[in-house]
């Protein structure tokens, strides 16, 4: 990959990767750091990566970095008191997309990520499985279960009757 192609990758995919990570962990500073790290890593091995594969590489690297951060954070936080009652608090917003994003935050990190890759980037199951390091069957299961959970959230918060 040339420097020009690297810069194209920054312009073309930078916002996409950031959006994916930010929506997965809901922390703009951490998302920024993760994407910065990802591009730093890309720059270090810029000559070894083909431009055609760079998008998947970026998402895959950012995803793995994010999982590391999540694991590290969960170790630091230890057992956080989880308020189950707030899980299905009644939604006042009428914007379905907004409510869905709030519902997405309730999902486990892996489910959240695969759904984001599917909906935001339109990746197929095989591509998602390569990015997330899962089998295709696992990806499908996570996505289907994630959608059911999102629907249940909408029903239980009275957004859908």
């Amino acid at each position: 990959m040339t420097v020009k192609e690297y810069n194209n990758a920054v312009r073309e995919f930078g916002d996409h990767v950031y959006r994916f990570i930010f929506r997965s962990i809901k922390d703009s500073h951490k998302a920024d750091d993760i994407v910065q790290d990802t591009y730093e890593k890309l720059w270090r091995c810029v000559t070894e990566i083909e431009y055609a594969a760079v998008k998947s590489w970026l998402f895959s690297t950012a995803y793995n970095r994010m999982i590391d951060v999540i694991r590290k954070d969960s170790r630091l936080v230890d057992v956080e008191s989880y308020d189950d009652s707030s899980l299905y608090a009644e939604e006042n917003s009428s914007d379905l997309n907004e409510v869905l994003h709030r519902a997405l935050e309730k999902l486990p990190a892996v489910q959240r990520s695969v759904i984001l890759l599917r909906d935001y980037e339109g990746y197929n199951y095989k591509e998602i499985s390569e990015i997330a390091g899962l089998s295709e069957a696992q990806v499908k299961t996570y996505i289907f279960r994630g959608r059911v959970a999102l629907r249940n959230y909408l029903v239980k918060t009275s957004v859908w009757q």
């Binding site: 930078g14 916002d15 996409h16 990767v17 950031y18 959006r19 930010f22 929506r23 703009s28 920024d32 994407v35 997309n97 869905l100 994003h101 997405l104 759904i115 984001l116 909906d119 935001y120 959608r147 999102l150 629907r151 909408l154």
Partner: peptide
């Protein structure tokens, strides 16, 4: 049930 990306920029 489809999520649409927001306008967040890096």
């Amino acid at each position: 049930i489809r999520l649409t990306p927001g306008k967040e920029t890096w």
